[in-house]
């Protein structure tokens, strides 16, 4: 090895970097300009790879410029103003306040997260640590399959099966008893569509995402970590709780953040289940709206450029939030991956 490297360092001006073993040898990354054909090859791959980068910038730039008109006209009212009225009437001036949508998005995602996060982490732990080997493959396959089910199917199931079931067995009794005191659960339940149903279906949708990511992160924990714990007489659960989870905590939080991102941006299931009304109601059973469903419902039949621009600013905010969440989550997961790789070598 040392000989080969020394020959190559003589050939192609690479000092310093070769000292580390973790980076592959320079000649294997094709940086040599001597091989004809490699220069256009690299240029071609770089060009198409930069198309991906360009795409992200195009999306961001487009969202930024197209939302300019509404952002200068309304400023932060676009997110926190409480009336959304695209059509001018004698009583109501045109106003674009996105708070109903923002509130709906945050609440439904919060409900989804509260339900899904503990369950999904438990599933991840079960799949990675406790599950009998015979069950592991089919269960993992099932979880991955469910992550691939199109959101419109969750919507169909929600509309036809879950909403009738939920409003008759949970929502109506609850609003009749608890609802009299706590305004969150107040009636009446008309169609059954509302924030809480949306939240529950979103929870089902993000469950597989969080569970499979948690499982992947737990798999990265080096076995020495578990063995050391078992060797000093810990039970299985103590091993998991005290040795495995602390090791991968950042990754699990990252997985939950990615799930949150998905719940915030989910469009179809929300559009079908949330009820789509701009009225803010205290009750979680009442219809509401979310940012994504607002855009999906109104953008194609927007009245005038200001309305369009306001809707695009809502999409812009959505993009910004998910960008931020993704960045944080990837950072955390990457952190776990790096530290586990460091632990192994």
């Amino acid at each position: 090895m040392a000989v080969r490297i020394s020959i190559r360092t003589a050939d192609y001006d690479v000092e310093g970097q070769m000292a580390q073993q973790s980076t592959p040898p320079q000649w294997s990354t094709g940086k040599s300009p001597l091989r004809h054909g490699d220069v256009p090859f690299r240029a071609g791959t770089v060009a198409l790879a930069s198309a991906v980068v360009l795409l992200v910038f195009a999306v961001a730039w487009m969202l930024y410029t197209s939302s300019q008109e509404a952002r200068t006209a309304f400023g932060w009212d676009l997110l926190f103003g409480s009336t959304w009225n695209p059509v001018e009437t004698e009583l109501n001036p045109v106003s674009f306040g996105g708070w109903p949508a923002v509130r709906g998005t945050l609440l439904s995602a919060l409900i989804a997260l509260i339900i899904a996060a503990p369950l999904a982490v438990a599933i991840g732990i079960y799949l990675a640590e406790l599950c009998p080997l015979a069950l592991r493959t089919p269960l993992s396959f099932l979880v991955e399959l469910l992550a691939a089910v199109p959101s419109v199917i969750y919507g169909v199931w929600g509309v036809f099966v879950f909403v009738p079931f939920f409003s008759s067995t949970v929502a109506e009794p609850l609003s009749a008893t608890v609802g009299a005191i706590v305004p969150w659960f107040a009636g009446p339940i008309a169609t059954g569509r509302g924030l809480i149903v949306t939240g529950i279906i979103l929870a089902l949708m993000i469950l597989p995402t969080i569970a499979s990511l948690t499982r992947d992160v737990l798999r990265l924990v080096p076995n020495t970590q578990r063995e050391a714990m078992l060797a000093i007489g810990a039970t299985r659960w103590e091993t998991i709780w005290l040795a495995v989870i602390p090791y991968s905590r950042a990754g699990i939080i990252g997985a939950i953040m990615l799930g949150l991102g998905r719940a915030l941006g989910e469009t179809m299931a929300a559009t079908m289940l949330v009820g789509n009304t701009q009225r803010i109601s205290e009750s979680l059973f009442a219809p509401a709206t979310t940012a994504a469903s607002l855009v999906a419902n109104e953008l194609t039949n927007s009245v005038g450029s200001l309305h369009e621009s306001a809707l695009i600013s809502v999409a812009f905010a959505l993009f910004g939030i998910t960008l931020f969440l993704n960045f944080g989550a990837r950072l955390l997961i990457w952190f776990v991956e790096r530290s586990s790789r460091g632990g192994r070598s």
Binding site: V52, A58, L264, G265, T300, I312, A315, F319, A329
Partner: peptide, 25 residues
């Protein structure tokens, strides 16, 4: 690394954003 990050951004951004982008462009 930049490309990888942009990939993650694309795969994490809501599908409606892709729709809005093409709708406008």
């Amino acid at each position: 690394t930049v490309v990888r990050f942009c990939c993650d951004v694309l795969s994490g951004s809501p599908s409606i954003v892709a729709g809005v982008t093409i709708y406008v462009l």
